[in-house]
Design a protein around this nucleic acid. Structure first.
Lengths: 219, 219
DNA sequence: TTATGTTTAAAACGTTTGTTTCAAGCTAAC
DNA sequence: GTTAGCTTGAAACAAACGTTTTAAACATAA
């Protein structure tokens, strides 16, 4: 018995790595089962289909993340902080929660972000719907908490600001290798993961607090 | 003669739309040639391969964008502005340049951003290399100009800050539909494209000017 | 041990993919 | 008008994909 893990776990482990590295569409079930050392048919047996596997991989990320975020948000909302302090604590909590994903394996964070990016940009509408239905409560609480401490904004303005902030987080975590490739010659980027993630907090807070109409209209 | 455009142009037009909507991998040449009303073999004849088509589509976006950016950056560098004013002008110029892409067809901007996102997150290393080689001068000047007006940062800090800002732009422009789906119930997002793009400028400036180590270390 | 339900193995299925082939059509120069 | 070179058309190619099938192997309970 060379394999201590079950077939399901070995598939999930291999799928997570391959999906994160090459995206959903460009990763074949044959690659996954081959790297996992299991039979090809095992995926369809245990997960029903490739879509089912994708959702299972995503759930393994989101379940602990969702739980941690939920308690963190509830704690934050019980305290009565000023808006700025609340935003700082909010983003710090988010980053810490994200870092907990990467505790065992540092590259898991990039995998997670790329997975999220694929869910939104690649044709994976089923994943998007699955996630938004499955984790709607955390998502709602997250947006409400965030909006509560950005009081000068209208719903519309907050919507787009949220959009910008989410993009910054996802893209940063997702594609650090690509940018490292480009700039490696001129700018060395050798910081550890916690440092990089940490650097995001003040940027996120500043972006969240940026004035809405401070700049003249362009057109 | 129902077709005024040439075969090459019709392929590029159709490919641009399909690639932007569904990504590179999930768009087949048969779909493109079918929508373009041309023969399947025409793609391989005129562009050599699917990769060649992808690069041609990208070039049609980047060539005018690159030219416009170059003159805009040179103009900006000739003026002697304060750092804040320079950053504002810088991002305003960038947004105006991006908007010029969408002048004829507003959805072209989302297509462009999704295309860029695909180039970085999907397994399209060839596109990344092609673009960075083809448009290296603009890219260099862009980073130098940006760095010049963020003087308090080290190379390493600037590298990551640049990373964050780029992510915010690309993600914002790329996936507005996805977030609109999610939040449509609670937050109506009906702003016009110029307004959305314009809202990005103060956020980008604030994020660029955010203090580096203003917040205590987390770990 | 026998019987039952679950998991794995190997092979094949039907599609779809990018690419190639080769003949037919077209355009322009001589 | 004929020839040469570029472009298009329809068909076929080999490879890769997700999925299904059928039988063997396994575990567990009676």
């Amino acid at each position: 018995m060379a394999s201590k893990q079950s077939t399901v776990e070995r598939i999930l482990d291999a799928a997570e790595i391959e999906f994160g590295a090459h995206g959903f569409v460009e990763t074949s079930l044959r690659t996954i089962t081959s790297k996992a050392g299991v039979n090809l048919a095992a995926v369809n047996y245990h997960f029903g289909s490739k879509k089912g596997l994708i959702q299972a991989v995503a759930d393994r990320f989101f379940e602990p993340l969702s739980a941690g975020m939920m308690t963190r948000l509830q704690e934050l909302n019980q305290q009565s902080l000023g808006h700025h302090e609340a935003l700082v604590k909010f983003y710090q909590g988010m980053m810490l929660e994200l870092l907990s994903i990467a505790r065992r394996n540092p590259s898991r964070l990039a995998l997670f972000a790329r997975l999220l990016n694929s869910a939104y940009s690649q044709g994976q509408g089923h994943l998007r719907k699955h996630l938004t239905h499955q984790y709607a409560p955390v998502f709602m609480l997250l947006m409400q908490t965030m909006a509560a401490h950005m009081p000068s904004m209208s719903h519309e303005q907050f919507f787009w600001r949220f959009h910008h902030l989410l993009g910054m987080m996802i893209f940063t975590l997702a594609s650090s290798e690509s940018l490292t490739d480009i700039c490696a010659a001129e700018y060395d980027a050798e910081r550890s993961l916690p440092e990089v993630v940490q650097q995001l907090v003040p940027v996120l807070v500043a972006a969240a607090e940026a004035p809405v109409e401070a700049i003249d209209r362009l057109v």
